[in-house]
Computed example of a mutant assay.
Amino acid sequence: MLSVLFLCTANAARSQLAEAIVNQRYAKHFIAYSAGTHPKGIDPRTLTLLTQQGLSGKALSSKTIQQLENQLQRQKGQPVLFNFIITLCDSAKQECALLPNDAAILHWNLPDPAAENGDALFEQVFVELELRLAEFVRFNHNPAAALQIAPIDVFKQFSDNTRLQILMLIEDEQRLSVNQLCVALEESQPKVSRHLALLRDCKLLSTTRKGQQVFYHLNPLLPKWVAQTLSTTRVANPSYINQPITRIRELANPNLTTPFVNQD
């Protein structure tokens, strides 16, 4: 079970909402806590909104970081270590640096709904927290299940045009051979093989053999953030590999060489 601490100034709204969302929607993987650098008590609108969203606020309380740590130390009989600390305002961001912890730290600077009249900002912040927490859980709920690849190693591969094209082509086509890639990129076999070897060494690609043919495909154990980065890059740059894709199609079917004609 991974632990996450949400921090904001007053521990009145943002951090309380985040704690409730995680503990009641993602309890399979996480246990969440919240605290404030200068707690002021829970805003009644926080509890009202949670009820409207089908969540309970009964277990929530407003407290300082020290009060939370003392409480958890009494319960567990040992110093408290959090896997993640997520600060929800700039003030808490500055003060969390003082915590004696090796936690992974994220900063989401959300507006304080308790500082304004009405419920509109509460609802807006709740929706924002839902979106951010869903993404956070997706990428962090089971870190041991995926390969551990350093971001610098991934972006080194992305920074080379040939290797990026290879990755995008394989992301599109699922699996490709050295011969197909040579035709697509109009590069020599030694050069393509050298790039493929680098991609295998950093575990971005794996291979499957079919008869005498070796096919390259994305490593099925890729961390989700790596797979999404590649997918997003492909979708956001749809024409980047147009010509290599066309060459692969022509290799598979030489008759597909006539360009489309506008019939309008």
Rank of each mutant, 00 (worst) to 15 (best):
G211I: 01
R209W: 12
A103Y: 06
G211R: 06
D90T: 11
D90V: 06
A134C: 01
K203Y: 06
F122W: 02
S159K: 10
P238A: 09
I152L: 14
R132M: 11
E171F: 14
V183N: 02
F136K: 05
E128Q: 14
V183C: 02
N142E: 15
V192Y: 00
L204M: 02
Y216Q: 13
L196Q: 08
L198G: 04
L185I: 10
Q94A: 07
K76R: 12
Q71P: 11
Q75D: 03
L131V: 15
Q52L: 04
Q66K: 00
E173G: 10
P254D: 01
A227G: 09
M168D: 15
Q73L: 08
C89M: 00
I166T: 06
T257A: 14
M168E: 10
Q67N: 07
T229L: 06
C96A: 11
K76L: 10
L221M: 14
I170C: 02
G77I: 05
Q16W: 06
F84C: 01
I86H: 05
L99G: 09
L167M: 07
I42W: 03
L230G: 07
L81C: 11
L50H: 01
K224P: 00
A120G: 02
L221C: 10
N109K: 02
L221N: 08
K203A: 09
L110C: 10
P220D: 04
P79D: 07
E116F: 15
V4L: 00
L176E: 13
S34R: 01
L7M: 06
L167Y: 05
P259A: 14
Q157H: 04
S231H: 07
N242V: 12
V183E: 07
L204P: 04
L88Y: 05
N101L: 09
N101M: 09
Q189W: 00
